[in-house]
Simulated assay, not measured.
Amino acid sequence: MNASSSPMESTSVWRSSKWQTIVFLMLAFWLSSSLLLDLVIMPQLYTAGMMSQPSFATAGYSIFWVFNRVELTCAAVILTSVLVLNRIESAVFTKAWAIALAFGLLLIGLVYTYLLTPEMSALGLHLDLFSANQELPAGMQQMQQGYWLLELIKLSSIIALLNALQPRVIRSLSH
């Protein structure tokens, strides 16, 4: 600590660095887990033929039930971190766009958890065991398009926040 910096400034820098690291790790975790689910797990289930099985709606709901809660936790921690950083420093995260993106991520998680996943699971549930008709229910295509649109917005928001934060975290870790 040099003569011009006070203990209060040092504590503030340390708290800021801690919150930057938390939000960076949470964003990286959420991005990687989303890509794993979207690009590895779901295509694997599709190629294995599981999506054509009558029990897929139940299995899909179980997978997404857990993942949606993880997404809500990530979004809550990210929004909290961005708001704390907004309060304790005057840098990237005092920008309104960072707060808007963090809040948007929380909204997307809420839409997935309480609207899309239950509706898509209900549409995919086959209640008539004697029906040979296993077509995609009406409305499912539209919901899948909505899911992928929200997924693109979510991934773009996470990447934008990571790009804004990355140089600051690397700088703080190198000190």
Rank of each mutant, 00 (worst) to 15 (best):
G139E: 11
F93D: 00
A59L: 10
Q144W: 13
W148I: 13
V111D: 01
Q142N: 14
G139N: 11
W97S: 09
P54I: 04
T94L: 08
C74H: 03
A48E: 09
L72P: 00
V84G: 03
F67L: 12
V82C: 03
M42T: 10
Y61F: 14
F130G: 07
T47M: 10
L45V: 04
Y147D: 05
R87K: 13
M42C: 06
A57L: 01
G109Q: 01
L83R: 07
Q141N: 14
A75F: 02
Y61C: 10
Q141V: 15
Y114K: 09
V40E: 13
A48C: 05
S52M: 14
N133K: 12
D128K: 07
E89D: 14
F103S: 07
I63G: 01
L101D: 00
A48K: 06
S90G: 13
A75L: 04
S121T: 09
W97I: 08
F56W: 12
W148Q: 14
F64G: 02
Y147S: 09
L72H: 01
G109W: 00
V77H: 04
A100Q: 09
N86G: 08
L106F: 06
G109A: 07
M120F: 07
L149C: 13
S62V: 09
H126M: 15
E119T: 14
A132D: 13
A76C: 12
E151Q: 14
G49A: 02
S121H: 06
E151R: 11
S131Y: 07
G124C: 04
L110H: 00
A122K: 15
F56I: 07
A132E: 15
F130I: 11
V84M: 12
G139Y: 07
N68M: 03
S121Q: 06
V40P: 05
L83V: 12
F103W: 12
Y112W: 11
G49Y: 02
A75C: 08
L129R: 12
G49H: 02
W148C: 08
A100Y: 05
L129W: 10
Q144A: 13
L127N: 13
G104K: 01
I78N: 01
L85Y: 00
T117A: 09
S52C: 11
L37W: 03
A96C: 12
I78G: 00
Y61Q: 12
G124Q: 03
E71Y: 02
F130C: 08
G109S: 04
A98N: 01
A122T: 13
L152F: 14
L125D: 08
M143F: 09
L136V: 15
A91H: 07
I88E: 03
G49E: 01
L45E: 03
E89G: 10
G146Q: 11
S131K: 06
M42F: 11
S131P: 02
G49T: 03
L39V: 14
T47I: 08
Y114F: 15
V111P: 00
I63D: 05
L72N: 02
W65R: 15
T94Q: 10
N68C: 10
L115H: 13
G139W: 12
A100D: 05
I88A: 02
L127D: 13
G139L: 10
L136H: 15
Q142Y: 09
A59Y: 05
Q141G: 15
A122P: 09
A102C: 09
L110T: 00
I78Y: 00
A132Y: 12
I99H: 04
M140N: 06
H126D: 12
L123T: 06
L79K: 05
S81V: 06
E71S: 09
I99W: 03
S131F: 10
E89L: 06
R69S: 06
